[in-house]
Design a binder for these strands. Sequence first.
DNA 1: ATTCTGACA
DNA 2: TGTCAGAA
Length: 136
Amino acid sequence: MDPVPRDMAVLTIGIVRQLTGLTLRQIRYYEELGLICPFRSNGEQRLYSINDVARLLRIKDMIDQEYTISQIKKILKPPTMPTEPTPQPTPSEHDLDDSNLLRGIRDQIHTRTDRSWSTTIIEGQLAQFYRNNRPK
DNA sequence: ATTCTGACA
DNA sequence: TGTCAGAA
């Protein structure tokens, strides 16, 4: 299987919402705070990569652990601009409705006990998600 | 249908 | 943070 380019921005905010469990408001707000820097297609459409999702997951955990924004900024490396734009259509949320992958991922997010492992586990599933939703 | 920005009970 | 408006 071809490895999934972790830095390729192809996920819409709607999918990221489902993948991370964060609200659209939070995802956009964290960007305002400079915690995340998604690629912008058409100059306005936000597109996230697996790295972005993993980063958001880490931010979510730190917020839960009552870290301050400045502390998170200090710990997390400055967000790097995604190198790859979106050459292919992005999978829509409808494609995910039938997928049990999303449910599995969400369960992982809500049931894990060791937060440091979460991103690894989730990225693995995201890789599977990509293989199953590869644009024709 | 989905996402974007700005704004406010 | 939630949510609504108005536009793309």
